[in-house]
Amino acid sequence: MYCEYIPVSPLPAPCIRASNDNKEKCPETEKTTVRIGILLKQGPYNHQASDTAYKFAEAAIRKGHTVEAVFLYNDGVINATRLMDPPRDDRNIAARWSELNNRHGVEILACIAASKRRGISEDIMIKGSAICGLGALTELAVRCDRLLTFGD
């Protein structure tokens, strides 16, 4: 099961492209838009990475760019547990990612090997998230114009 591979979505042709020269213009606003992928490698509440990644994604979407997916790796997979229950006056990091998926179609992908090691399985994951293999990260890097890493 460790090499289980769930494809994210069909690749646009051609599959392999230079990763910084396909900025597109939005037909309505004439603004340049980029496709962004995010790699998140730290757990929630113990490092600022989850918050920086979320705020960056939010701002990118607000500016009309596409955030294709957030790939959770290492302790980052803990971002996807729906068991977290922070105090009411604090942000719920997992729910925030789920909301991003629901509203803007951002895929929340958790690495299977990292998830299995940390007890993260599909039955305790937030709505809109999925478990996948590292191949999905490669695919994300290929199909996005930019891949940003947040972590320690």
């Binding site: 990763s19 910084n20 900025k23 340049t32 980029v34 962004i36 490698k41 705020k55 960056f56 939010e58 701002a59 990118a60 607000r62 500016k63 760019h65 930019r146 891949l147 940003l148 890493t149 947040f150 972590g151 320690d152």
Partner: peptide, 19 residues
């Protein structure tokens, strides 16, 4: 810059995140 300025930089340049 604020987060939107961060996004503008990412739009303009390739990115290398040093960790």
């Amino acid at each position: 810059v604020d987060y939107e300025g961060f996004v503008d930089l990412v739009e303009t340049y390739k990115v290398n995140n040093w960790l």
